[in-house]
Amino acid sequence: MHFITDRKRATGLGASGSGTTRHWRLTVTSVALVALVVFFVFSFGFALGMPYEEAAAFYGRPFPAIVALLTFVVGMYHFRLGSQVMIEDYAGGATRHWLVIGAICLAYLLLAIGAFSVIALAVRPLIVPAAPLVLPA
């Protein structure tokens, strides 16, 4: 870093110190979500209201499970960034900090609940044997 001047190191980073990183990440996640949302609406919407066994079997299949997993991960990361943009427009000082912390925690909580559940549903048919294990005598 000794080769870079202070001016060069600061250029393009702006008052936030991180430049346009948040805007870029919101853009990337928004492009991904355009496709994910379409797939998720028509897979989850199909499963919603199914009897228990049918719904569990539906999310034991790879395609609906991968779509749901990606939608939770990308969607909640998009919310984590986007909600902060909104909060920073309307709140200042300590209120701003608490609201941003709360929104980030909520985003990762729902991400964890959703992702864990989808993975558990997808993996269960692979690890729970269909018939009881019978040991040889």
Binding site: F44, A55, Y59, A68, F79, I113, F116
Partner: peptide, 17 residues
């Protein structure tokens, strides 16, 4: 931002499943 409510409902549905 309102879609967080929907996400919470859907996460609940998956956790319940």
């Amino acid at each position: 931002n309102a879609l967080i409510v929907t996400t919470a409902l859907i996460a609940w549905w998956f956790a319940a499943l």
